[in-house]
């Protein structure tokens, strides 16, 4: 049982929860995720760790209400308990000084991107963050992102904030403007697919973080399998990060709809 100590609304259906999980807070690294069960009849769902405070023994989760379980979690209040939180799972992000790194996040994907932005900056990279969403209200964590970024580019589909246009346009404008050594992208599968296509065109190495269906999250069930470079890979133990140019996003998107 893990107590929710703080809750903040990012938008109508995106909340930030700070949850007691001292062992995970102490051992997690950027890129790791946890499996969460909301109640004793709940399902196991993977959520990326957005931040952690080892001293207070808490981790930060950013949850978007998209299914029954995430909706239930978003409705929980401080003082209530998540039934189970287990982790940290997945391989941590490989952090080094690449030079210039573009970190590009869509919607709630900005949350798991934040610790990577932070770590990339601390490793000495020039970090340019591209945040994208449908509309202004859905841009989250802009302040925290800008704290660790040399530049932040905002893209909204409707032009209500930042530049009007798609995330790919934002990424492409940076790539065309200056040499970029690595792009990191986290967001909806379709967004990562098009970011990958864009950066492939410019030959910029690109890493994505995948969020697939999982049951155990520890390498046992195989629900999270994806095809990377023609080989079957398991997101929970081989990932969640992969070379975006080699991921079969179309297959992944079909598999994400398994239970719709």
């Amino acid at each position: 049982m893990n107590k929710i100590v703080k809750k903040e609304h990012f938008s109508a259906n995106v909340v930030k929860l700070i949850v007691e999980a001292p062992l995970i807070a102490a051992s997690r690294r950027p890129g790791n995720f946890v499996i969460v069960i909301d109640n004793d009849h709940g399902e196991r769902i993977p959520l990326t760790i957005a931040d952690a405070d080892p001293l207070k023994g808490t981790i930060t989760l950013v949850v978007q209400a998209i299914g029954d379980s995430t909706r239930a979690i978003c409705e929980m209040e401080p003082g209530q308990y998540l039934h189970d939180v287990v982790g940290p799972l997945g391989r941590p992000t490989h952090i080094e000084n690449y030079g210039t790194v573009v970190c590009c996040g869509g919607g709630v994907g900005v949350a798991p991107l934040l610790p990577i932005i932070k770590a990339m900056k601390e490793a000495g990279n020039r970090v340019i963050s591209v945040l994208a969403a449908r509309t202004k209200e859905l841009i989250i964590l802009e302040k925290q992102v800008s704290e660790y970024s040399d530049e932040v580019v905002i893209m909204t589909d409707d032009g209500s904030y930042g530049n009007k246009g798609l995330v790919t346009q934002g990424v492409e404008s940076v790539i065309e403007r200056e040499p970029v050594n690595l792009v990191v992208t986290i967001g909806p599968a379709v967004m990562m697919k098009f970011v990958a296509l864009t950066t492939l065109k410019h030959n910029v190495p690109t890493m994505c973080s995948l969020n697939t269906i999982m049951v155990d999250g520890t390498g046992m069930c195989g629900a999270c399998r994806v095809t990377v470079d023609g080989h079957m890979r398991f997101v929970c133990i081989d990932g969640p990060e992969f070379d975006a140019h080699k991921v079969d996003f179309d297959e992944m998107m079909l598999r994400l709809k398994s239970y719709n």
Binding site: T218, M220, T227, I237, E251, L254, S258
Partner: peptide, 17 residues
């Protein structure tokens, strides 16, 4: 751990587990 699959075409279709 890791379940084995056979590596045949179509094995990643939905409702194959």
């Amino acid at each position: 751990g890791l379940p084995r699959f056979m590596g045949i075409p179509g094995e990643s279709l939905v409702n194959i587990m």
